[in-house]
Design a protein around this nucleic acid. Structure first.
Length: 477
RNA sequence: GGCCCUGUCGUCUAGUGGACUAGGACACCGGCCCUUCAAGCCGGAGACACGGGUUCGAAUCCCGUCAGGGUCACCA
């Protein structure tokens, strides 16, 4: 049985890279009828935050990545929060000490820092010199009397170590260059490299799918597995997602968290679709796919081994495509209402009107927030600023009169086609160029010279609002 | 700096020794449509990092150079 996990630490929002890692784990689990587990790695008490944990779970669900076992829903290998598994780590750290495979280290962080700097200065790799490995009883007692709390270091066995990665193939390293890693901090809490091994083992994780940045950690972890005589899981290190400038993706590169994307008006299906294609492509090179289709096409062997650059423009296109061609109007409405709920813009529109807007605009919209343009036009009377006023004043008096009279006479505001035809007639009958007529009316109704098609605006506004706006504007001119 | 990973259009990618005049998608440019801006449709430009091998034949295999990224924490 395939068992994979996504193991975020709750120190920030779920970002694009994390979401993609979660997705690949999810895909692999579903494809192989396995289990997808969520584990929270909250051993850094300073930076971990329960709120982030909740946001991460919420965003994962928003993306449609449901897990089979996790801190909130439990499971046979609970608990799924590292902070609740502290005894387990201590037990195995002690076991390693007793077997001479790990040792207490009494060095302080300051001492280590000094040593590291020195080594770096001499252009040497910063490796711990094992000064605490063979401490005399006297020295040890001295440290204890000073009140020093020891950390536990893993004793790295020196050898040629080869690991096999499902994406990169065979990888090897000389373990001499690995510094003895601290596995238990002096406060008794495990470090990442130790916690991962213990938990993955006891949660019976079969495949570790994670970002490339963990490639070097893998050697340390494999050594720990070997020292405990545990079975080593399969590894698949997926390429990183880089910023457009090819550096590591971070906040300064714009919208990189799922939270932000949501607020910008992205649709979950589009986000999933886009990130699935970052470092992976199906055999048939299809681009537009739903999550279940991606599952059926997914194959770890299709995952590339080089990094991909994050391009929000392409994701916008996917979003556009989903809105225009894939989603039903009611699905779009649902997404729109979700967005409205979190963005507190206070539009006072009922679903029927929103649906009308969706029908009219979905072909040209890229982001859900683009619908707001029309919402604004419907809800807010035009602002008559100076430049608008000047433009308004340049409209011929006769044209002005024609517009007012004809819009007053017109009755079929609920029929787009009739509006179109009527405007055409007005244009012909009064010898006003269509372009000029449209431009003038748009200005009167919205205070802008660009925007959605004019008949749409008139249709959505209805007779009452249309006439009212024109009358208001008339006073200024 | 050591070690590890990687290098196909600007970007995501197809490509696994001959089917490659290197294909698709986003972005870009031009045209059509047209009441504006878009959308849509049609068309265009655009890449095998470089240098050596191996081979009848290389984007594909090997070596080197260069470039990019990652990592060397009592962070994960």
């Amino acid at each position: 049985m395939v068992r994979v996990r996504f193991a975020p630490s709750p120190t920030g929002y779920l970002h694009i890279g994390g979401a993609r890692t979660a997705l690949f784990n999810y895909l692999f689990a579903r494809k192989n009828n396995g289990k997808f587990i969520l584990r929270i790695e909250d051993t850094d008490f300073e930076r971990s935050n329960k709120e982030y944990e909740e946001v991460i779970m919420r965003d994962l669900r928003w993306l449609g990545l449901e897990w089979d076992e996790g801190p909130d829903i439990g499971g046979p290998y609970k608990p799924y929060r590292q902070s609740e598994r502290l005894d387990l780590y201590k037990e195995y750290a002690n076991k390693l000490i007793q077997e001479g495979k790990a040792y207490y280290c009494y060095c302080t962080e300051e001492e280590l820092e000094v040593q590291r700097k020195l080594q770096l200065k001499e252009k040497k790799p910063p490796i711990y010199d094992r000064r605490c490995l063979n401490l005399t009883d006297k020295k040890r007692q001295e440290y204890i009397n000073e009140g020093r709390k020891p950390s536990v270091r893993f004793l790295v066995p020196y050898k040629e170590l080869e690991i096999t990665d499902l994406i990169h193939g065979k990888l090897s390293i000389d373990t001499k260059i690995i510094s003895d890693p601290i596995i238990l901090k002096s406060n008794g809490v495990p470090t990442y490299n130790f916690g991962v091994v213990i938990d993955d083992h006891f949660m019976e994780i079969t495949h570790v799918i994670r970002g490339d940045e963990h490639l070097d950690n893998t050697y340390r972890q494999v050594l720990i597995y070997e020292s405990l005589d545990w079975q080593i899981p399969f590894y698949a290190h997926i390429p990183m997602i880089l910023a457009p400038d090819r550096s590591k993706l971070s906040k300064r590169h714009g919208a990189t968290s799922v939270e932000e994307l949501k607020k910008l008006g992205f649709i979950n299906k589009a986000v999933i679709n886009y990130i699935a294609l970052l470092g992976w492509s199906p055999k048939d090179n299809t681009e537009i796919m739903f999550l279940d289709q991606i599952v059926s096409k997914f194959d770890l062997s299709g995952v590339l081994d080089h990094p991909a650059v994050y391009d929000i423009e392409k994701m916008k296109y996917f979003n556009h495509y989903y809105i225009a061609n894939i989603l039903s109007d009611s699905e779009i409405l649902e997404n729109l209402n979700q967005l409205l709920a979190i963005s507190n813009l206070g539009y006072n529109l009922d679903d029927d009107l929103k649906l009308k807007v969706i029908k009219l605009e979905k072909n040209r919209v890229y982001l859900l927030t683009d619908f707001f343009e029309l919402f604004d036009i419907i809800e807010k009377d035009p602002e008559i600023k100076e430049d608008v006023l000047n433009e308004l004043k340049s409209i011929d008096r006769n044209v002005f009169e024609v517009i007012i009279n004809s819009l007053n006479d017109f009755e079929y505001y609920d029929d787009m086609e009739k509006i179109k035809g009527y405007l055409k007639d007005v244009s012909k009958g009064n010898d006003i160029k269509v372009g000029q007529l449209y431009k003038s009316i748009r200005l009167l109704l919205t205070g802008k010279s660009e925007g959605p098609e004019l008949p749409k605006i008139i249709y959505l506004l209805g007779k009452e609002k249309t006439i009212k706006r024109i009358n208001v504007v008339k006073q200024f001119v």
